[in-house]
Simulated assay, not measured.
Amino acid sequence: MRILFLGDVMGRAGRSAITDRLPGLRTDWQLDAVIVNGENASSGRGLNAGQAKALFEAGADVVTLGDHAFDQKDMMQAIQADARILRPINYAKTAPGAGARIFDIGGRKLLVAQVLGRVFMSRQYDDPFHPIDTILKAHPLGRSVQAILIDMHCEATSEKMAMGHFCDGRASVVVGTHTHVPTADATILPGGTAYQTDAGMCGDYVSVIGMEKTEPLRRFVTGMTKDRFEPAAQEATLCGLFVETDDATGLATQVAQVRVGGRLSQSGPT
């Protein structure tokens, strides 16, 4: 299975890049499945139903969220109406929607799960390792499902790496999101799981993690707040991870960092 995962979509620039570029990438890279983290699509604060619809129309098969899952209030209803939208599996127990689902991809089964880390996060969530362990034990890779992708949404690189090793050999892909900066460690772990600590954002990199740089710089330099943060609006780079898996085992056979458009150096599968 040929899978593309795209990191946090940041504001209008990120949404436009998805709309403009994803349809062509699906064709050019012969993609079977596309998973997009839509956590920051709505001016950096969550995702609304209309924006989710646009991501699906552009070619996303699944959209994951994160700690801003319900910042846009209509997502409370949208996530119940559309099973393709996932919130973190260890979010509040009363939260609507699901944190993991199996999707039919051309007759093959792809399990997608998202989980929130706890280190340095603004709120305390349930332990991320136990629910992921439960999911992996219930759905053996290469048997009940052909591929498994886990979106690990958290701050700490150490916690993301720990999740990668925890899932090695049991998941096809573990990829980190949330920090908006692509890490240079895309690899296949010893047990066969593709891994990257952070996929980066789909947004304008002439910014401070996707926000127009004037106000963040003011706050860092002076310690004072003047204006609201606003998403940067120049051309975005699509950042993410491409993985090809073996249907028989579910393990990764190829991994490549993805950087398309914008100002970053370009990268993708060969």
Rank of each mutant, 00 (worst) to 15 (best):
V181H: 06
Y195V: 00
T187F: 00
K226V: 07
A199I: 13
T179D: 00
M224W: 02
R170T: 03
E230L: 14
A194Y: 11
L189F: 12
G200Y: 12
E230K: 15
M224E: 11
S172I: 12
T214L: 09
A194D: 10
K213W: 11
G203V: 06
A184L: 12
A171L: 08
V181K: 04
G176Q: 06
V206N: 15
K226C: 00
G176M: 04
F229A: 07
G192P: 13
E215G: 09
V173H: 05
G192Q: 07
A194P: 07
P182T: 13
V174H: 08
V175Y: 00
D227H: 10
P231L: 06
D185H: 10
A232S: 14
G223F: 14
M211E: 03
G192H: 10
D227G: 07
M211G: 05
Q234K: 15
E215P: 04
T237F: 02
G210S: 08
P182H: 13
M211H: 01
A199W: 10
D204Q: 08
L189H: 12
T214Y: 05
V175P: 01
E235S: 15
H180M: 02
T193F: 06
G203W: 08
C202T: 15
V175C: 13
T222R: 10
G210K: 02
G223C: 11
D185F: 09
T193D: 03
L189V: 14
T183H: 08
H178P: 00
M211L: 14
T177I: 14
V208L: 02
H178K: 12
C202V: 15
